[in-house]
């Protein structure tokens, strides 16, 4: 074990599933969504991915359920529900 709490492998935050902390999760309504991508840029965990210019997935392994995406969505396409 390295001394002093050092982590000697880079890129290890992928192993720390912060999504385990969440009590609520986002539910995305694709019909309402206008793909402005605001939620993608604003997510503090980078848990909202984009594919071909459209919102793709919400990665629940890393979403802490903070609800910033739902709050900021201009068309109310994201709802936070209990996990």
């Amino acid at each position: 074990m390295p001394e002093g709490g050092l982590i000697v492998e880079a890129g290890n935050s992928i192993e720390f599933k912060t999504g385990a902390w969440a009590s609520v999760k986002p539910v995305h309504d694709k019909n309402k969504c206008v793909n402005c991508l605001k939620c993608h840029f604003i997510c503090p965990e980078g848990a909202i991915s984009v594919k071909d210019g459209k919102i793709d997935k919400f990665d629940l392994d890393f979403c802490k359920g903070c609800g910033v995406c739902a709050e900021e969505c201009p068309v109310k396409a994201i709802k936070m529900v209990k996990k």
Binding site: M1, P2, E3, G4, G5, L6, I7, V8, A10, N12
Partner: peptide
């Protein structure tokens, strides 16, 4: 290990809870 070694990046001073803190104190 040192932070300016760009060939071997490390994390110094991370969060250390009930998982490893005690082992680090024992060290």
């Amino acid at each position: 290990y040192y932070l300016l070694n760009i060939d071997k990046p490390i994390t110094s001073g991370p969060l250390d809870f009930f998982d490893y803190y005690f082992e680090h104190k024992r060290q």
